[in-house]
Computed example of a mutant assay.
Amino acid sequence: MNNKRKIIIDTDPGIDDAIAIAIALFSEELDVKLISTVVGNVSLDLVTENTLKLLTFFGKNVPVAKGSKEPLFQKFEDATNVHGVSGMDGYDFGEPNRSNLLEEHSVNAMRRTILESETPITIVAIGPLTNIALLLKMYPEVKNNIDEIVFMGGSLTRGNKTVMGEFNIASDPEAAKIVFSSGVNLVMAGLDVGLKALVYPEDSQIIKTFGKTGDMMYSLFQKYRGGSFKTGLKMYDSCAIAYLLCPEMYELTDTFIDVETQSNLTLGCTIVDLKGYLKKAPNAKVCTDISPKIFKEWFMKSIKKCI
């Protein structure tokens, strides 16, 4: 019997997405049933191509489904300044195998995967929440077979896309608002813990020795602008996978979260009510802090398994 935790990854690769996906694919505790792609770091076509390249590189046969090509209401703005024009600049993956690319929209593929699963599915969202919002609004029946949604996004303080908005949430704040009000179990691993989840130069040098995988990751790291190759690269998206595999690295609290969708000044700001000012029932667990030491040990061990 397969006792692995069944997950769907919704993603927009992205260099830090690529690392998180790799860790999930090689984890002995996770069973990746579907990878859903969403516009975010780069266009939908590019993030889908990047996903297929990663699966081909690692020799993994996981179904892939293309999702939303634009946010619900906002204008799409990519993050090529961080990840490069392709979204995964720095390494020549070659042509991917496209045989596992499904014809159906990822929202439909997620619905089918969730409803067909004998055990509840966990959704790991490491891009904008567009696909997840559409899934929950179009097919509310899936909620009964979703264990939880673990997402990398949001911030307890300030942003990295706008003054107060973290990239994934600020890219589609209306979608995030739908997810926050869905009633599904939510876990937020946000910008604050991502800023402390660092890969330092000495770590990159060790990773470089991990065969073909190490060479690929080292090459991507040299082009990644989430932090600095010299002072530490921020592994934001790996924080969501880390919550599933090593939750003891986090400090957690139950609280109420909402997102600003009206103000031009604070659009995409996550309102994380740690003090209970709004007097609303908690709708999420929030990672309020992380142990950088435990993260580093876990990360390096996890990457070593990806060979």
Rank of each mutant, 00 (worst) to 15 (best):
M1I: 10
M1W: 07
N2A: 03
I19L: 07
I21V: 12
L25D: 07
L25F: 13
S27V: 06
E29P: 02
L30K: 05
D31T: 01
V32E: 04
K33C: 10
L34E: 09
I35E: 04
V42E: 10
L46M: 13
L54K: 05
T56E: 09
F57W: 13
F57Q: 14
F58C: 03
F58T: 10
G59W: 14
K60I: 11
V64T: 05
K66L: 08
S68D: 14
K69Y: 08
Q74T: 13
K75G: 10
F76S: 07
D78Y: 03
D78G: 12
T80E: 13
V82K: 09
H83C: 11
S86N: 12
Y91L: 09
G94H: 13
E95L: 15
R98C: 11
L102N: 14
L102M: 14
V107G: 13
R112D: 14
S117R: 11
P120F: 11
P120A: 08
I123M: 08
G127C: 15
P128H: 10
P128F: 04
L129W: 11
N131K: 05
I132Q: 10
L134D: 06
L135Y: 12
P140S: 11
E141S: 12
E141V: 05
K143S: 13
K143F: 06
N144C: 02
D147G: 02
G153F: 01
S155E: 09
R158F: 15
T162V: 07
F167R: 03
I169L: 13
A170Q: 04
E174Y: 14
S181R: 10
S182K: 01
G190A: 08
G194N: 08
G194S: 04
L198P: 02
P201Q: 03
S204K: 00
I206L: 02
T209C: 02
Q222N: 15
Q222P: 01
F229A: 12
G232R: 05
G232W: 05
G232F: 07
Y236I: 01
Y236S: 07
D237A: 13
I241P: 00
P247C: 12
Y250R: 08
Y250L: 02
D254E: 15
V259D: 08
Q262T: 07
Q262W: 04
N264H: 06
T270I: 00
V272Q: 01
K279T: 03
K279D: 09
A284N: 05
C287I: 06
I290Y: 01
S291H: 01
W298K: 04
W298A: 07
M300P: 01
K301E: 15
